[in-house]
Structures are given as C-alpha cells and as structure tokens.
Design a protein around this nucleic acid. Structure first.
Lengths: 192, 192, 192, 192
DNA sequence: GAGTAACCGAGACGGTACGTCCTGTCTTGGA
DNA sequence: TCCAAGACAGGACGTACCGTCTCGGTTACTC
C-alpha cells in the first residue's frame, strides 16, 4: 500500500492524482472519477496511475478516505451512552450529508471490484473500527458495557443499521432515526 | 377462457429473459448478466428487453428475487427470542452461501443504478421486511418486545449488521457470529 | 471484403470512414490515419470500424486504393516498347509525386500487419498486375515480347526497381531514371 | 598502449545492445526488439541507448546488418552471366529464408522512421551495391555488359524484383523464380 | 379468411471507458 | 563523471458494454 519509491516524483504524482480524484468525486460522484478524467485533470498519465493503483475504485477510496480522515471526531463526555449515541448521530449525519452518496458508491464499487476492497477497508473501516474500539474499551472500563460482547459486534450492531439504510435508502437517516437505532441497540430489542 | 393478455408473446419473452438471467447470475454473478448475454441466451432481442426493464440491474433483481422468494422461511417456535435468533441465523447463512455474493452485487448495483432500486426493493426488501414485521407483531402480542421500538428499527438493528458484513467482508458470517449479533441486538449492548 | 449487409447504414458508415481516412492520409500520411482520428472525423465509432476492417492499415489501403483506382491510365500507342516505357514513366511519376510517400507507407505497413496485406494486394497489386498483363498480352500478340517470360516476371522486372527505389530512397525517381530502367529491362543488361 | 576510447564503457554498452537486439530479432522479429526489451536484456539503460542511436529501428538495422555482413559471398566463376545469376539466387534465398522476414520488417520500418534510413542504407544497401558494382565492373571489363547501363541501374533491375516480392509476398522467392528473373533481366524482356 | 397493425428477432451503431503497450525524456543515486 | 534503473507523459491501441435505432418477418386481432 505504501511503497516507498526512490523517486520523489512518485509522491507528487500520487498527490496530484488524489487531489484531482477528490475534486471529481465532489463534482460528480464516483461516476465522474473516470481514470481518463483523473488522468486529464491531474496531468498524470494513465500508465502511471495504473502503476500505483489497481483500479479507479481504489484511487477513489484512497482519495475520499484521506479527505474524510478527521471528519468524524470521537466524542468524550464521560458518559458511555451519551458518547455512543452521539457517535451514531455523527455517522448518520455524515451518511445523510454531502459525502454519504459518494461513500455509498464507494462501498458498492468495492463489492464488485475485489482489488479495491483493501483500499476501502484501510481508509474507512479500519479507522472507524479503531475509533469505536476506543469508545467500547472506555465503556468496559467504566463497567457500563456488557463484557461478553466484542467491540466488533458492538460496532456492527450500532452502525450496520446505518449502512443498511444508506445502501438501500429504505428509511431516512435523520437524527431521530439515529437515536431510535442507538437506543434500541444499546438497550436491546426485548423487554428486560 | 382466452389469453388474459393481449400480447401473450410478451409473457413468454419476459419469462425467457428471467430464466436466462437467473442462469447467468448463477454461472458468473451479476457481471455475467450482460444485456447482450441475456439477449443471446434468452433469444429475446435487446429492444424488447428494454421495453420491459429499465436496466440490466432491474432484470437481475427481478430474476434473482423471483428465485429467492421462498428461500427463507419464517420460523414459528412460539418463543420470540428463538424465532428472531433463528431468523438472523437463516439470513446470515443465506448471505454466506452460494447466493450471498450475487445478492451483494445486486445491492451494490442498485446504489449506482437508480432505475433498479425499486426492483431491488420490491423483490427483496419488501418481502423481508414484511416477514420481520410479522415476527415483530407476534413478539409485541406476546409482550416480549419493547413496544417503543418500531418493526423497521428492529429489522435494521437485527439485519443491518449482516448486510454490513456482507458488503465489506470485514467479518465472517458464521453461525456463531450470527448468534452473537442477535444476542447483542436483542438484549442490548449495555448492562441493565 | 464486401459483406452485403441488410442494413444500408453499413454502407454509409463504411463510406464515411473511407472518406475521412482519405483526407487524413492526404493531410498527414499514414501516421495521421489513426483509428481514433478516423473515428472522430468520420463520426463512426471505433467499435464499428473494427467490425468492418481488421486494422487501420486495411482501412488506409482501401481508402487510398479506391482513390487511386483510375490514377494511372493504360497507354496504347500501338508500339510495345513505347507503351511499356510510358507505363514505367507513369508509375515512376506516381511514386515520386504527392501520393508516393503514402503508397510507400502503406506497403511498409502491410509488411508488419498481416491482416492488411490482402487489402493492399486487392486495392493495388491486383489492378496494377492486371493492367500490365494486358500490355504484355498485346506485346505477345504483336510478337514483340519474349514468350518464355511470364507477365508476372515482366511486371516484377519492370516495376520492382521502382518499388525498390521508392522504399529505400537510394536513387531518384526521375523520368530519366525511369527510362534508363525500362530500357535496361526491355533490352537486357548484357550485350547481345 | 591504452584504451583507444576515452570511454571504454561506451563500447561495451554498444556491443551489449547490439547482441541483445540480434537475439531479440531472431526470437520475435522486429516487433520483439522493443527499446525496453533491448534495455532489459542488454543491461544498458534506455538513456544510454538513446545516446547512441536515434531509434530502435536504427539499432535493429545495425545489429542485423552486422550479423548479415558476410552472409552473401561474392561469386567469381569467370562467367558474367553465371556470376550474376548466382548472385540473384543467393539474395533470393536469403530473402526467402530465416532472415528475410526481419529484413523486410527493417526495410518497412525505415520507410516510416526517417532517422533509421541512414542506418539501413549503411548496413545493407551500401555493402550490397558495392558488391554488385564489383561484379558489374568485371562484366564491363570482360565486355559482357552493356556499357550504357550504370551499375546502379543494373542492381535495381536485378534485385528490385526480389525486394518487390519480398515486401508484398505476391509471388514466391524460389530458385526457379530467381532464375526466371535474372534471365529476363539479363537478356531483356523483348525479342532481339 | 384476408388485411393490417403491433410486435419482435436480429444486430448495427455511436458513445464512453477500459486497461495495455511503447516511445523518448528525465531524474536519482550508486560506482 | 558516467551510467543502470526506471518513473513519467503522451498517445494509440483493441475490447466491452450500454442503450438506441432500423430492418424485415411474424403474429394475432379486426373487419
């Protein structure tokens, strides 16, 4: 993923490509981020592009992920439920917003394009899961969380519903809905 | 008495197309279900195909959905938790199995192809959500379920995590994982 | 070579392509007759072009050959030596002129591109050889020609030298040189 | 005493390049003699290669010409007609043989690539023409040849037909054909 | 039972993007 | 100081699929 080249020009080319791609994504979504278009706008030739990435989806994942890196901050109110609820709200808002569409397209594309999945995973999932792992650990330390549940499962139960809605569009991603989901997930669907 | 349709040929053509598409999906996934390929195999011309469907994804959704219709039966053990757990297991198994890949491709494609979304929703989501609505109503009737949670939210919390994993492949879809998810979702992530 | 399509559009497309190619050849030689350029100028898509011809060289051969068809008239003075000398002059002049360069490029390209050779042969060699066959037969009928020499050999001895010079540029293609060649070829290199 | 060149490495590099090229030509014809391939096989960098030759065709011409240098010996039977006939046979055989294809490709390439023509001329034409000049002078000395015909014209009349056939493939290059050509050229196409 | 519409197969077509290949220039770091 | 190693822009290649279109033959309703 991070080949260190002897030639610094590699870095410049990579950067140009990622910037151009970022712009194209913003303008016309993933569909606009054609390899030809990226090449034309970045001034980097297609051959070079294909030397650095296996497919346009991979480029888009990296470009978009780089930009999104610090988009969703980790809340820390001292209260577990508040923190997790807030986080679900944030992510929901992100999906519903300007970038959500592109994110969905990216996720969709990485299903079809196996070469791109590692990029998508690296630039989106890993960071997100690490963040949630952090929150979850805090919750466990406070004794608020059910210790039988792994951070991975918790993440999926909290954010899977959002992804589901993002992909199918079968339900809105409003704050109310986000709260309903986090509440249901945190306290369980069944009566105690 | 007579043919119900004014154009019985249409029916035969639709059927040929759906069968051919089903076979192509089974053989090579969504990528193989090219409109040209469908046309060639079904003997139905492309013009006719485009008269019946807006895009190849729509055809594939209908063909695949028709086949999958009765694939996942609704459990009825009399025990709410057992029913829901079983259902999550079933769906998880379906996703993990032979058809899961195609389902994922279809969902992915319907993100990109707006014309296909209604088909996808009709042939997959609606049926599934209706089924869960049924289970959830039973649970409410029994007084097992939290009445403040809507069937829609319940569905998303239970199955969203599976979809999430299916799409990204970041975690396996084994029975143990399915049980971990349903258990966490049903009883909540936090301590009571 | 001449597939008769049920669709008259085929003819229009072929014609557009050949006209565009002719113009490109005139403007920039064979190098300018890129498939992309031909497509752009003719308004015929690349896919269609490749359905009709195996390679750009083939297109160029057909386009150029069509144009050249009646360029070199068959002389008929009643005198064998004069006729043949005149013909060599004509061909020499053609090679030396505006079109010679393109002809050479075409011949060169058909060496590299086996798919194009039949086109080159059809549109250039066959016509030329038939013409010479005609002259040669007349000469035989008059009793002027050596009947032990085939028309093919005669053609090669008369025009091979011109081709040779055209390809290598090692000697000019002036009228004097043409006459020297035809004289030498007609009367022999050795003393009688 | 010392190395004659200031840069003995240059010599080694040139030699490596030419050897590698020769091998590539033998293996896959001119098409295989890519600059990249030559660089890779010879261990000489592309930059260095371009310092010594203007284009790949030039390299190939030199490499091939060097190898071919002594391939066609000059006959000397004391009989002019026999000598020339023999020479035509030899050249025809060469063209028809293993190396003929590459020679044709080289000639073809030097049409397109102006930078390579001098190389082609130097390594092929000049040597060949000098040889024929030698034969022709002997013939003149013996009084067998027509003194009004220049060595250049004689060469073209004798060997042009072979080149013609080599390039277009319109007729075979067998010994019989070679003899037919040399006989026709030497004694003339017309009756005396 | 013939006439007449609508329909359909076949597939050509323009368009767009793909991913590959080669050229000739340029840069870097090591010998 | 010179070179190998190879990155790079540029540009053409040939392919694939899409969605539209035109054609001519067939079908099945209408009169």
């Amino acid at each position: 993923m991070f080949e260190q080249s002897a030639h610094p020009r590699s870095l410049k080319a990579k950067d140009s490509v990622l910037c151009a791609t970022k712009d194209l994504l913003a303008e016309g979504g993933l569909a606009a981020a054609t390899v030809d278009a990226i090449s034309a706008r970045s001034g980097v030739s297609k051959a070079t592009i294909y030397k650095h990435w296996p497919s346009r989806t991979a480029i888009a994942a990296e470009a978009f992920g780089r930009e999104m890196a610090a988009e969703i901050p980790l809340p820390d109110t001292g209260n577990t439920e508040a923190d997790l609820t807030e986080q679900v709200r944030h992510v929901s808002k992100f999906y519903a917003g300007r970038h959500g569409k592109v994110f969905a397209q990216l996720l969709a594309a990485s299903v079809t394009d196996p070469a791109a999945s590692p990029y998508f995973r690296e630039y989106f999932l890993d960071a997100r899961r690490a963040a949630i792992g952090e929150l979850w650990q805090r919750a466990l330390d406070r004794g608020d969380a059910n210790p039988e549940i792994s951070a991975g499962t918790a993440t999926d139960v909290l954010f899977g519903p959002l992804i589901f809605r993002l992909m199918t569009g079968h339900a809105p991603l409003t704050e109310e809905e986000a709260d309903a989901i986090s509440s249901a997930a945190l306290h369980g669907l069944l009566k105690h």
